[in-house]
């Protein structure tokens, strides 16, 4: 006999005017190697077919299933019930638009973010695919990959106090990481000024309060703290230099 698990699940369907946000309790017997993917699907198929939640890869690589599990944003599919107490509270992630119950719209948010930070290689080189590729040091390739591993799950955003305070505005750690990725990439010809234009504001890197919720929850363990620090230092000091430079030149 497995443990009797008690799931307290947030319920609300914004499409239904009669629906009010509330918590609902479901009970389930724990089975071996049970994950929240298995548990939530069983609840939907056996107890309440209207329960809304999202899964895709169920292997911890697509970022579709992020939710608050006992208060902490994490991927539900790689969360084993064994690691949780008998009483499990699941809430949808804040900051993102609620679709219903545990389902939130991370897709639209991330597309906007990608557009905002112009998340693509900016280059005016004309590509000749028949020619040999440009060389790159393997160490650099690995470094870029390390930052490219973000799965856009949104955990870092949901865990960020600043993003919770100004949800429509603050860009979030995933965006800063993405900028860091392109700054590292020699194929992107953007200048520091252009990066500055994109993230050098209080809704961008200078609004980050250093809360490190992002760093602590990222399921892919991206080096967010180090990226954030690098970005602020680089852009912050370049601004100082720039302004002092202006002061000096105007005195002349």
């Amino acid at each position: 006999m497995g443990r009797q698990l008690k799931f307290n699940i947030f319920r609300y369907n914004p499409e239904d005017s009669a629906s009010v946000p509330h918590m609902e309790t479901f009970r389930l017997e724990e089975t071996e190697a049970m994950t929240l993917f298995i548990a939530l699907n069983r609840i939907r198929e056996e107890q309440d077919p209207s329960l809304m939640f999202d899964f895709m890869c169920r292997a911890g690589i697509c970022g579709q299933c992020a939710m608050l599990i006992n208060g902490r944003p994490d991927l539900a599919c790689h969360t084993k019930t064994k690691k949780l107490p008998d009483d499990i509270t699941v809430l949808p992630m804040p900051v993102f638009k609620l679709i219903g119950d545990l389902s939130v719209d991370t897709g639209t948010w991330f597309r906007d973010m990608n557009t905002k930070v112009e998340s693509w290689i900016h280059s005016d080189k004309v590509l000749d695919p028949a020619a040999q590729e440009e060389r790159m040091d393997n160490v650099l390739a690995d470094e870029i990959y390390e930052l490219e591993r973000c799965i856009e799950c949104g955990c870092c955003v949901a865990a960020c106090g600043k993003a919770n305070m100004i949800p429509e505005k603050f860009m979030g750690a995933a965006a800063f990481n993405r900028i860091g990725r392109f700054m590292l990439d020699p194929r992107d010809q953007r200048t520091e000024n252009e990066y500055f234009e994109v993230v050098g504001t209080d809704d961008g890197i200078f609004g980050c309060l250093g809360l490190l919720g992002c760093e602590d929850v990222c399921p892919k363990k991206l080096p967010l703290q180090d990226q954030l620090g690098m970005l602020r230092r680089k852009l912050g000091f370049s601004a100082v230099q720039h302004i002092f430079g202006k002061v000096f030149s105007s005195k002349k």
């Binding site: 693509w120 290689i121 280059s123 028949a130 590729e133 390739a141």
Partner: peptide
Amino acid sequence: LAVREMCAWGVPWNRVV
């Protein structure tokens, strides 16, 4: 051609060491 195109677009392919 497709691999090289993806390379120019930003895929951090592993490289020969």
